[in-house]
Amino acid sequence: MTRAAMINAALFAMLPITAGVALALDEPFIITLATKVAILALAAVGLNIALGLGGLVSLGHAAFFGIGGYAMGILAHHAQSYTPLMELPFLIEGTKSMPVIWLVAIIASALAALAIGALSLRTTGVYFIMITLAFGQMLYYFAISWPAYGGEDGLSIYVRNGFPGLNTLVPIQFFGLCFAVLAVVLWASGRLARSAFGLALTAARQNPERVEAVGLTPYRLRLVAFTISGAVTGLAGALFADLNRFVSPTMFSWQMSGEIMIFIILGGVGRLFGPVAGAALFILLEHLLSGVTEFWLIYVGALLLLVVLFARGGLIGSLAGREVAHD
């Protein structure tokens, strides 16, 4: 086992250990925090497919996070108010079943990512950053001014949605579920990176001309990566909404996009477990510092600056040395 792999394993084990200790000490809020880490890490794992593998710096991933959240909000809202989502041309009812909600969230955010990606990927560099930001803002303003689902007030769901065989209202069970999803997605994303597709994508980032020369289209590779990335972040959005039992347009805000990106940088770009480390560190800091000072964001800012300027591999990079540099 390399040092990086050991660190990854330790990091990954830390979440369930934390949750288990919290359970033993009867501190359900710590379990809630661990759940939040797992979900936000999942969102960042999604972004990391576009950003780490594909080199696509998207400052608009909050769009997919929000779409996933609203997929959950809208379906559960209709289920809890016993009103059909749509009657014509055929009847669609709301639902409170997580697997169905997840599926809808994944499909909706994948379609959105496909559309946004198809347009945005015509640009590169700063233009790409900015056009993804613009799409995010568009959805943000749309969500605020669209009255049907609460506008800026958002939607509250009174009871967490159900999963067959589990009582999701029990914090530790919901944590287990989110953690399992994270584990599956991490495994799949590791496979993806080593697959032919992942290698081609990495090559398209490092040397697009050569990829074209062997007959692949970088645009198409990137579009597929962007779509998968959006779908994963959308799934995380649905889980996040279920964690809070609430959705609102702030899930679409550009600060949200920035935060998801911060998790990746804090952990280390292009590293499979980077997002987990980054999300854990961020939530820990938020939890500890906000109790100490009103101005805790200064310290988060300063830390982030230090990481970007001096610890280029992020948290995992610093711990593991430079044996697995990202480029």
Binding site: P28, T32, P171, F240, N244, T250
Partner: peptide
């Protein structure tokens, strides 16, 4: 931020075990 407020409410209820809550400024 509504998401933060929801999480703080969970914390107040689950960890701090408060009896009464108050303080929120914004309707959303």
């Amino acid at each position: 931020k509504p998401e933060i407020a929801v999480q703080l409410a969970d914390k107040m209820i689950q960890s701090e075990k408060v009896d009464v809550m108050t303080g929120i400024i914004w309707s959303n």
